[in-house]
Simulated assay, not measured.
Amino acid sequence: MLPAAIWISMVGLAISRSSPNYLGNHFTVENESEEVRSEAIKRLLEVFGMEDPPATLVRGHKQPPQYMLDLYNTVADVDGVTKDPTLLEGNTVRSFFNKLHSEQIEFLFNLSTVAKSEKILTAELHLFKLRPQESLTFTRHHFCQVSVYQVLDSSKKNVSQGKKLLSSRLVPIHSTGWEVFTITQAVRSCMSDEGRNLGLLVTVRTLAGVQTDLKTVRFTSGRNHHHSKQPMLVLFTDDGRQAGFLEGTPKGSDDSPVGPSLPFPRLPLPSANRRITRSHDYDESIEKMPCQRLPLYVDFEEIGWSGWIVSPRGYNAYHCKGSCPFPLGQNMRPTNHATVQSIINALKLTKGIETPCCVPDKLFSINLLYFDDDENVVLKQYDDMVAGSCGCH
Rank of each mutant, 00 (worst) to 15 (best):
M1P: 08
I15D: 02
S16N: 14
S19G: 11
P20C: 08
N21M: 06
N21H: 07
G24H: 10
T28F: 13
E34Q: 13
R37I: 07
R37V: 02
A40E: 07
A40D: 05
I41L: 13
R43Y: 12
E46R: 03
V47Q: 04
A55S: 11
T56L: 06
G60T: 08
G60K: 07
Y67P: 01
Y72K: 05
T74C: 03
T74S: 13
D79Y: 09
G80M: 04
K83I: 15
L88C: 00
L88D: 01
E89R: 08
N91H: 10
N91D: 14
V93R: 13
V93K: 09
N98D: 12
E106N: 11
F107R: 00
F107K: 00
F107V: 02
N110S: 13
I120F: 01
E124A: 00
E124K: 08
H126G: 00
L127I: 05
K129F: 03
L130M: 11
Q133W: 13
E134P: 15
T137S: 05
T137W: 05
S155Q: 14
Q161D: 08
K163F: 09
L165V: 05
L165I: 11
L166A: 08
S167L: 02
T176Q: 13
T176M: 03
G177K: 10
T184Y: 13
V187R: 09
V187E: 10
M191T: 01
R196A: 07
N197Y: 10
L198H: 04
V217K: 07
S221T: 15
R223Y: 15
N224L: 05
H226L: 01
Q230D: 09
M232G: 06
D239N: 13
A243I: 12
G244W: 02
G244D: 09
G244P: 00
E247K: 14
G252W: 03
S256F: 02
P260D: 03
P263A: 00
P270T: 10
P270G: 05
R275Y: 14
I276T: 09
T277P: 05
T277D: 06
R278I: 13
H280W: 10
Y282F: 11
D283L: 11
Q292M: 00
R293F: 02
L294C: 03
P295I: 14
Y297R: 02
V298C: 14
F300T: 10
W305P: 10
W305Y: 12
I309D: 09
C320G: 01
K321E: 04
P327V: 06
G329A: 07
N331W: 00
Q341C: 02
Q341V: 02
A346L: 03
T350K: 11
T350W: 07
G352F: 04
T355P: 00
P360T: 11
K362M: 03
Y370D: 03
D372F: 15
D372T: 04
D374F: 15
E375W: 04
E375A: 05
K380E: 12
V386F: 05
G388P: 12
C390V: 12
G391Y: 09
H393E: 10
